[in-house]
Each structure stands twice: as structure tokens, then as C-alpha cells.
Design a binder for these strands. Structure first.
Lengths: 249, 249
DNA sequence: AGTTGTATGTGCGAAAGGCCACATAACGTG
DNA sequence: CACGTTATGTGGCCTTTCGCACATACAACT
């Protein structure tokens, strides 16, 4: 019934693309391309997941929502990772929501297949766990950033993280939504974005943000962006599966 | 050379105690009891770990330190978990520090043995990953809490989390150190702690904090404490390894 | 072209928390 | 028991952010 994913589509997700050929090809017949629209909810607080998703062009935000309705973003997953880590970590559900922050495609993988492949302990397991560790770093740094840095710094960090995960220089995102992500007021974002526009780092019109100068953004951002970026590069970049024995036949 | 851990000591760590007898007994000969003093650094930013540690009576804080020296706590590990997840998650190092927040004992396990046992994919792997997921929840909730809640609420959350992990009603901890953990000023803690003392929740004298009334603390705390507590109970409480196939012979 | 909805800009007062300076109080040590 | 050290208490001033109210501006559709 469902369309099968092609090789070309599957390599767009860097986690999948980093797998050795035999594991990669074993997965392809189980991957189904899906399309996410802006604002779509991938999973809800405590909701059981039937699939994990490997974004190709979509970006998904992990959001925590408080009882009083305020929310904040913990992390971002793009074509570098996977949404739904609770399925292989063993908990089944997570106490947060995953919302599509940038429309695009993803490849979904059935939970049962995922768990079977994970249990084999090969490069797939290794990659999934390393990605999870990178995600932990991102969440941690977000926590610190929330505590210690200004809205402007956080906005820069957020713009850079998002920009890293889309192919274009334009982000489709209103200031209102960014405010929700950062857990601040919309007005605070307006003011900070206005400053960034004044110094020529970005230009924005009604929900369309153009990244003009990454260098300015990087110098205006707090160190948090770089720490997260470096750790992602370290953990997901150079492929060195020899660091761990492959228990694969 | 090193003393071996006894059965009685090993069951004091709940993660170890939850293992089926065959896996538990296989680990015991590899566990060495160690003793941590207050303030001792278990591992540094980026430092290679030779061991993981299963606290029995000690409590270990995971701290992020900024370039300007300010720091904040991401999570807390007591006898419910393990310190050094980077060793089985595959990254080797983590960009944070682990500091002993409450002196006490732990059991250490050699990295190589850990990885070999982890690769077997049995209940041990299952438990370690579930604990890691619980830790992710704790870190995430800390992030949100930092963003949205008052120092007083955070102090309550912190006192409750710490109290859950020690056998006594007294915490050995100065307000200065608590301020570092929460990423706030020492004076802010003084004021908040003063209020909690006024309403009869705690009593403190020079680094000795007595928990007098948990109910008051729980009502004064934000929801964050309960969310984390519930998730820990769900993930680490009832033992149901049948949710995942044991690939053990 | 006008209307409507959504997005953004701006200006207050209030609150929380940061930074600084210093006062008090407990404890240990000689 | 005098002293220095460490821990806690307090106040004053400043910055950041919040919360609210409302002004403007762009975009799409009739």
C-alpha cells in the first residue's frame, strides 16, 4: 500500500546515510516516505508511537508544555537524526511533544522493525545511541542557555541551529512561534529580531526570515551554539564504528 | 588489589538490584566499592572515563559550566542510576562535569566490562537505556524550569530531588553550592530558603538543611518535580523486561 | 479598493533577579 | 576566649524580562 522509500531519498537523512551498505539496504524496504506540514504534531505528551521518523527535509521541534500552557523547546531534529527515541530507549512514551517546525519530508520506520534492528547491536544501534547522546547535549545546553543568556543570544543560537538543518537561507517562521520555542514573549523576539535586522544579520517579513550573515549571528550568539555544533560534529560526523565492536554476523 | 563488592552493597543501587539474578551475579565480581567525598569531581568536561559508577549512598550532580565560569546543574544521579552514560552511549566523553553533591559510596565498573555486558543486549542494556531516558526527562524539565519558574520553586524542586536520593532528612549543602547548582545568586537562595524556613518546610544551619515538611515543599514547588518523579517511577519502577525481548542465551 | 486577519512595532509599569557592599552569626583553631 | 574563616542576612540600585495595551503594517480575498 505505502510507497517505498528510494535509495536517493534515504541518503538524505545523514544518520541513515552513515550506515554501512548492508545495514542501510536492509532498512530501505522498511522505510516509508511521509510528508509533514508546518505545525503538524508528530507525537503528543505521553502518546504511544507506532513509528520513528528520520527527517530528510523536515525539521521537528521537541517541546515541553507546562500546565499553564507556556512552553519551551528542548531540542531540534533535522536530517541529522531521528524523532521518537523513546521507542529504542525502552520507555515507549516521552513527556513532551514533537511539532513540525519546518515543513518537509521524513522516512518512517515501524516500531517493531526498529526494535528488532536495534537489538542486533550493529552500526544502527551505535548510530541511534550516539545521536541520542548528541541530543542530550543539545537539551542540556538549552537548559543552561535558558538560565543564563539574553533573548537576543538565544535567538541567534536558535536561528543558527535551524539554519543548519534546512537547505535554504530562508526560514518560514513567525516571531510568535519563535517566542514559543524559546519560552519568551513575542515582543521580546520582535525587539531582538529588530536589532539583528539593524546590524544586517537577518531580514524578515511576516514569517519569512532570511539569513544574511551567519558570521554576525555566530558572534552575537552565546557559546551555546558552538558547543552543541561541535558535539554534534564529533558524535555524528566522522564515522568510526571501530570504536565499538560490531556484534553483527 | 581492589576490594570486591558484596551482594549486600550491590543491591543498594536500585538499577543493579533490578537486574535478574544471573545478570546481577555476573556483574558483582566486576564491581569495586569506592568512596566519594563532598565536592569530588567524578569526571571533567570532555574527560575520558575509565569507569561507570553506580552510586549506593553518594549523590552526583551533572553540571554544565560556561566559559565565564557560571554553572548550572542538569541532573542528579543517586542510587537510582549510573554516572558515565557516555561510555555505553558511544560518545566516550561528555561536555559537562560530574561532581559529588553528597558524600557516600558507589560501585565502579570498568569501561570495557561495561561495554561487553551492554553489547549482550539483555536486561542490563535495557535498564541502562531506560535510566538514560529518565535522565533526559530530568534534564529537559530542568531546562523548562530554568526558563519559567522562580528561584523559590526551583529550590523546592531541588530539595525534593535531593531528599529522594538520600536516606536521611538532612542534606549537607551550603546555600552557596545550591546557588551554583541552580545557576542563581547565593543571595537569591538565602532569601528563598529563609521563606521556606518561615513557613516551616525546612530548617538550616550553616550547611545543614533539615527537611521538616515534604508536603509544604511539594505544594510550593513547581510541577517540574512531580513530572520528573512520575517519569522516574514509570521508567525505573515496576520491572517489566517482557516489554523487550531478551537476546540473552 | 476596502475589509479582515495576522504579523510586527512600541511604550509603559511591575516584578524578578543580577551585582555590589557590608552586617551579622556560627564554627574551628590556636 | 580571641581570632580568622566560612556561612548567612539585608539593602540599594540596575538590567532584563514580563504583562498589558494599543498602534501600525502587510497580505489575501471579496
Amino acid at each position: 500500500m505505502s510507497t517505498l522509500a528510494t535509495y536517493d531519498e534515504s541518503v538524505k537523512n545523514r544518520l541513515l546515510a552513515s550506515l554501512p551498505p548492508n545495514e542501510f539496504e536492509r532498512l530501505i524496504p522498511n522505510l516509508q516516505p511521509v510528508s509533514f506540514s508546518l505545525g503538524e504534531v508528530v507525537y503528543e505528551f505521553g502518546g504511544q508511537l507506532g513509528f520513528v521518523y528520520f527527517p530528510t527535509t523536515a525539521i521537528v521541534s521537541l517541546l515541553y508544555t507546562m500546565e499553564n500552557g507556556t512552553s519551551a523547546e528542548m531540542g531540534l531534529t533535522g536530517n541529522d537524526g531521528v524523532v521518537g527515541i523513546a521507542l529504542f530507549m525502552g520507555g515507549g512514551t516521552m513527556p513532551n511533544r514533537a511539532v513540525v517546525q519546518s515543513a518537509g519530508g521524513a522516512l518512517r520506520l515501524n516500531a517493531k522493525v526498529l526494535q528488532d534492528q536495534f537489538a542486533l547491536g550493529g552500526a544502527f544501534q551505535y548510530r541511534l545511541l550516539r545521536y541520542t547522546q548528541a541530543l542530550i547535549t543539545q537539551i542540556s545546553q538549552t537548559a543552561v542557555c535558558n538560565r543564563l543568556h539574553t533573548v537576543e543570544q538565544q535567538l541567534c543560537r536558535w536561528l543558527l541551529l535551524s539554519h543548519d538543518r534546512v537547505p535554504a537561507d530562508e526560514l518560514i517562521m513567525t516571531q510568535e512561534l519563535i517566542a514559543d520555542m524559546l519560552g519568551v514573549r513575542r515582543e521580546g523576539v520582535t525587539v531582538a529580531a529588530g536589532r539583528l535586522q539593524d546590524i544586517g544579520a537577518i531580514r524578515y517579513v511576516r514569517g519569512h526570515i532570511k539569513i544574511l550573515d551567519r558570521v554576525i549571528l555566530e558572534t552575537t550568539a552565546c557559546e551555546c551554539y558552538r558547543v552543541v555544533k561541535d558535539e554534534f560534529d564529533r558524535l555524528l560526523g566522522a564515522d568510526d564504528p571501530s570504536q565499538r565492536q560490531a556484534t553483527l554476523g
